[in-house]
């Protein structure tokens, strides 16, 4: 049974009915939905913000993240079984819970939304006060006290969620370092657009595979400035777990160092706010042990290459017609920026 939009109602009206019914199950009857607004314009997920107001006046600020109602099939690639590494919404919500229990700062996920004829599957989280836009985190005075702490804090948080017992994790795909390289190279090959710059990156990584280290754990998969929530005191939430998978966890630390998330503050390698040594101090303090900066560098190179391939994916999502979009077409050309960044990192 596929969820369908009732043509007689707006998307928000239909969702408000779903929410009232679901909240009645959790909080008892009479919950009113106020301020329901869709946050992301992204095509691949829907994120909604609202307040549940109880009959006694108690107000619960919540976020719902669910699969889109007009869902496009995920893009598939020749030779890449299962397509991109990603998890479904129920798994994503479960990862918030596990990361929180492991001591990482994440919004609480109190309950889920099951798929039925009116809605796709999703999960709810408490809406925290904070800023998630990377540019603002780096620029605004309100975060001046927070910025010097962030590199340590993101390292600490990563160590906590990397330590989650693998037996507790929901089923998800996993790839060791060489498998992950092959995964992205096969995606690139599926576009039949020879790319000498990215080939050079793959060759560099292939020749230095031992530098990747041999850790294997939960990867957040998109751990960067832009997916963290920051308040005046520093890091208060790690968001967007939809790219989670098993793999070398230092990949998360390298991804945090990719130049694109520095928003122009290039002297601060970690997210535009800090240094690698601070992040690794935080990682050690969080129980992750001592990490060789050369491992982080390997994964920073990998991350830069991966971001280039992800730009290509969006470009070809437009070119191949899965979703015609001037935005995706333009992002396809951003691969040149990551190619330049990549080549600056290599010798």
């Amino acid at each position: 049974m596929e969820a369908a939009q009732d043509p007689g109602k707006t998307a928000a009206e239909q969702l408000a009915e779903v929410l009232r019914d679901r909240l009645a199950e959790e909080y008892g009857p009479g919950a009113e939905i106020e301020g329901l607004v869709r946050l992301s314009g992204g095509a691949s997920r829907e994120t909604w913000s609202f307040d549940a107001v109880m009959p006694d006046g108690a107000r619960r600020p919540l976020i719902l993240k669910r699969d889109p109602m007009d869902r496009q099939a995920d893009k598939q690639f020749d030779g890449v079984p299962g397509g991109r590494l990603a998890v479904d919404r129920l798994t994503e919500g479960r990862l918030f819970q596990l990361a929180g229990a492991a001591g990482a700062p994440v919004p609480t996920v109190p309950f889920f939304l099951a798929k039925d004829q009116r809605t796709t599957a999703g999960f709810f989280s408490h809406r925290l006060a904070g800023e998630a836009l990377g540019r603002r985190i780096l620029r605004e005075d309100a975060y001046a006290q927070a910025r010097p702490r962030l590199a340590f804090q993101v390292g600490h948080a990563a160590a906590r969620f990397h330590a989650i017992d693998r037996d507790l994790l929901p089923p998800m795909r996993g790839l060791p370092a060489d498998g992950e390289l092959l995964h992205y190279r096969t995606i690139m090959d599926s576009f039949h657009q020879p790319h000498a710059g990215f080939e050079y990156g793959f060759r560099w990584l292939q020749e230095r595979l031992e530098q990747a280290g041999d850790r294997y754990a939960l990867n957040h998969g998109d751990f960067r400035n832009g997916n963290i929530l920051v308040n005046g005191d520093g890091l208060c939430g790690v968001l967007d777990w939809e790219s989670a998978h098993l793999g070398n966890p230092i990949s998360d630390l390298g991804w945090m160092c990719v130049r694109s998330w520095r928003y122009g503050y290039h002297d601060k390698v970690v997210g535009g706010f800090g240094d690698v040594s601070e992040m690794l101090d935080g990682y050690e303090a969080g129980g992750g042990g001592r990490v060789d900066p050369a491992e982080v560098y390997f994964w920073q190179v990998f991350g830069t290459l991966r971001w280039g391939i992800l730009c290509m994916i969006l470009g070809f999502t437009h070119i191949d017609g899965e979703q015609r979009s001037v935005e995706y077409a333009a992002i396809g050309r951003r691969a040149a920026e990551t190619e330049y960044d990549l080549l600056q990192l290599l010798d």
Partner: peptide, 26 residues
């Protein structure tokens, strides 16, 4: 020599696609 060539090619690509990318911002 390959790296020199690739870097020059990437610079040209950026000069077309987004010349502001190489200007420091903040």
């Amino acid at each position: 020599a390959v790296l020199d060539h690739l870097r020059q090619t990437a610079l040209d690509k950026i000069a077309l696609a987004n010349p502001r990318y190489l200007t420091p911002r903040g």
